[in-house]
């Protein structure tokens, strides 16, 4: 499963407008019981160090710029993992007046992790899937670069 991993991807977490449930499950997956660090994945607070963006919760008027801002600061290749049903569609809050919908309204989401709250096992699964996507994107980028050099 992990054969494709050549490097240690770093993750950054941002809480859109989630209820905290998924956020603490992200924290729990960093802690010893689930221990995501065994895959070489480290949590960072700086978007410029991060490869994978974990977003919990939906998009609203206030945080839309923040989310775009964080994503734009991340170096390429980058992947986005939307965690929890709120990040996918708005979930139980989809009819609230301040909820615009899932994260895919503003960012290209690579992996969707369902659940309310998403379980640490599925969060880990989602991040591992994102690492494969990251490798693919990297391959594509180097191919494009080689093409340009030939031209």
């Amino acid at each position: 499963m992990m054969a494709h991993m050549k490097k240690s991807p770093w993750v950054i977490h941002y809480d859109g407008s989630s209820c905290n449930g998924c956020d603490i499950e992200v924290l729990a997956s960093l802690a010893p019981h689930y221990d995501i660090e065994r895959f070489g994945i480290i949590h960072t607070g700086n978007p410029k160090h991060a490869d994978i963006l974990l977003i919990t919760g939906s998009i609203n008027e206030q945080n839309i710029e923040v989310v775009k801002n964080i994503y734009s600061q991340m170096p390429k290749p980058r992947a986005v993992v939307a965690i929890g049903i709120c990040a996918l569609s708005g979930g139980v809050f989809r009819e609230c007046y301040n909820v615009q919908g899932g994260v895919d309204k503003v960012l290209p989401v690579d992996v969707h992790v369902p659940g309310c709250a998403a379980r640490p096992e599925s969060i880990i699964d989602g991040i591992v899937k994102a690492t494969a996507i990251l490798e693919e994107k990297k391959k594509k980028m180097s191919e494009e670069k080689a093409k340009k050099e030939v031209e």
Partner: peptide, 8 residues
């Protein structure tokens, strides 16, 4: 940043 308006 997290306001949803769930009271409504």
């Amino acid at each position: 940043y997290v306001h949803r308006g769930l009271e409504k």
